[in-house]
Design a binder for these strands. Sequence first.
DNA 1: CGAATAAGTGGAGGATGCCTCCGTTTAAGA
DNA 2: TCTTAAACGGAGGCATCCTCCACTTATTCG
Lengths: 190, 190
Amino acid sequence: MTTLLELEQRRPARADARRNYDSLIAAARIAFAELGSGAPLEEIARRANVGIATLYRNFPTREMLVECVYLEEVEAVCQAATDVADLEPWTALTTWLGRFVDYVGTKRALVDALNRESTALQACRVGLVEAGGPLLARAQNAGLVRSDVGVSEVMQIVSGISGVNFASVELRDKVLGVALDGLRVRPTGQ
Amino acid sequence: MTTLLELEQRRPARADARRNYDSLIAAARIAFAELGSGAPLEEIARRANVGIATLYRNFPTREMLVECVYLEEVEAVCQAATDVADLEPWTALTTWLGRFVDYVGTKRALVDALNRESTALQACRVGLVEAGGPLLARAQNAGLVRSDVGVSEVMQIVSGISGVNFASVELRDKVLGVALDGLRVRPTGQ
DNA sequence: CGAATAAGTGGAGGATGCCTCCGTTTAAGA
DNA sequence: TCTTAAACGGAGGCATCCTCCACTTATTCG
């Protein structure tokens, strides 16, 4: 996954500029959490003690800012894929997916963005697919999951359902469980 | 389903007002289709040859306008539930859900709105639940679908996945098919 | 160290869209 | 026809977006 590299490349070279860049990301993270992904950009610039022009120079579009804010957090979710390596194949898969759901549940912005066409978020998706691949493959090799689905299909099911407004976490998990059951191999045909 | 009644009640009494109301809905339908659900309200008023205040008087919030535009179309989807009555239980259910998916696929605005809290769209949901209820019950009575899910859970799976951006309709239908497979009764336990 | 310079900065200001307020118009009933 | 309550339109205040350009400063090199 080259994402963090790309991120690093985008980071400006000059010391003061780099400080502003980091300050903007930090301010944006907080503002998005407090005000949602529609938080006024000028407010974010203000919180970062930076002119609005500096924000726009670093992040020409709002989407790009959202991306950069969440990229490293997605990285953490990817990392979590290795933490479940010693669980049963099916449990490992669903546990990891649960981790993903918990994460995106708190950041609707990301889910919205994940849907749209977006160069850098594409890398995000690639990272998730790479992280989840082994987990899915293991469950498939164990004969637990139908072999005709890929990680991206699974992620589509999960992220789609995660985007719905549920009355409770329990309900969300129940619905997710039902849908994920569709992944399992059928004892009898059809 | 009282939805259309409510809609009728909201329609103004005076002839000129009623004309404006209808004109606004017609203009909004076109504008939403062309420009997405974020189409400028002043643009919609302009297209309807109506002042912006008239738009706001009839539809105090943007959401309310979206609702009214799509309500009657949702009605049609509900109607479609009776058209599949003579198919096999499972086929009837999935065919109807497919009809729903085709519909919402073209109107992202509705899916967005369907998620949020919204008084009148609540009625929408109620309508869909009432329409789909018999189809689901039939499949459950035939022993094809697990008995511990309700229509709203099914709709949540379907509308959630419909909200994802798929590369193709075929892919979307495949993913939906996998998820809906989770509804089926398992020949053997676990 | 002290220019030179390229990189970076801030915020004014034009554009757009939201929504309200209020003076004016008009349909409907007597 | 007259009255009146309902409906109308658009000006204008406000928030946010985004660009432009005159000014500042970190870095480099003599």
